[in-house]
């Protein structure tokens, strides 16, 4: 059984129909890429999963249970962590406070994430512990949002365009971190425009365009398929 499945999800903003029968599945332990251009529906897919823009029809199942219809905070507590594309650290809170806010104490996780553990993964954050969220660089903010989401002990991470706007060196660093997170047992669904970045970290990929899934397959096949790349991903 897949960890996360979307079954014919349709989502609207007001009256505009954004997602058309989106279906996908992510197995436990995978890193899956959701590829598509700007405005293809990647962020909306994520917002539909986490419940910020609930789908109008279709089903989102997590660990076999239906989660669409639940409020965002409940879905988060079921074990899905969402890292939005514009990073959104809390600007008035220090790095440490940003992390503390996300701690969930009531959960009986075997090996819960702690501030120390995420510092071990992102040493840079420890150096900047006392700085405010608004004082961080783009890369540091990206690390902080990922670290903050880890504090909720997710079984699955939704990463929305983590490489966007970051320097190539930082992107390479980020790729290592995602592999590291995967090693810690967290499943990852990754929305990206950057095909090379996905090639480094993910096993499988979906290509989404104009709100519907156009392609699914292994990254290896996708990389070899020039037609799909040309049609849906070339800028």
């Amino acid at each position: 059984m897949a960890l996360l499945t979307l079954d014919s999800v349709n989502t609207y903003y007001g009256r505009s129909h954004i997602l058309f029968d989106v279906s996908l599945a992510v197995e436990k332990g995978e890193v899956v890429a959701l590829l598509g251009r700007n405005g293809a529906g990647k962020s909306t897919t994520f917002r539909s999963i986490i419940g910020l823009t609930p789908p109008m029809s279709g089903e989102v199942r997590f660990k076999g249970e239906k989660v669409n219809g639940l409020r965002a905070f409940r879905i988060c507590r079921r074990g899905i962590g969402f890292v939005p594309e514009d990073r959104r650290c809390f600007p008035d809170l220090t790095v440490r406070e940003n992390l503390e806010v996300a701690v969930r104490r009531e959960k009986n996780t075997v090996d819960p994430w702690t501030v120390e553990r995420v510092y071990a993964l992102f040493p840079r954050l420890q150096e900047r512990e006392k700085n405010l969220g608004s004082q961080l660089s783009g890369g540091e903010q990206q690390m902080l949002t990922i670290a903050r989401t880890l504090m909720t002990n997710p079984e699955m991470l939704l990463l929305d365009e983590p490489s966007e706007g970051l320097a190539p060196l930082v992107v390479a660093l980020l790729a290592d971190m995602i592999l590291q997170i995967r090693k810690e047992g967290v499943t990852v669904l990754l929305a990206e425009q950057n095909l090379n970045f996905c090639a480094k970290v993910s096993d499988r990929g979906y290509v989404i365009d104009k709100g519907s899934v156009k392609y699914e397959g292994t990254m290896k096949n996708l990389l070899a398929d020039d037609e799909v790349k040309e049609k849906y991903l070339a800028v």
């Binding site: 910020l52 409020r71 965002a72 988060c76 809390f90 406070e97 806010v101 969930r104 989401t149 909720t152």
Partner: peptide, 23 residues
């Protein structure tokens, strides 16, 4: 901790929601 959550929420309500905080 609650105070920190309050400050976090006043700068980004939606994000706090997605982090599992009961709005």
């Amino acid at each position: 901790r609650t105070g920190k959550i309050v400050r976090a929420t006043s700068s980004d309500r939606e994000m706090a929601d997605a982090l599992g905080i009961n709005m």
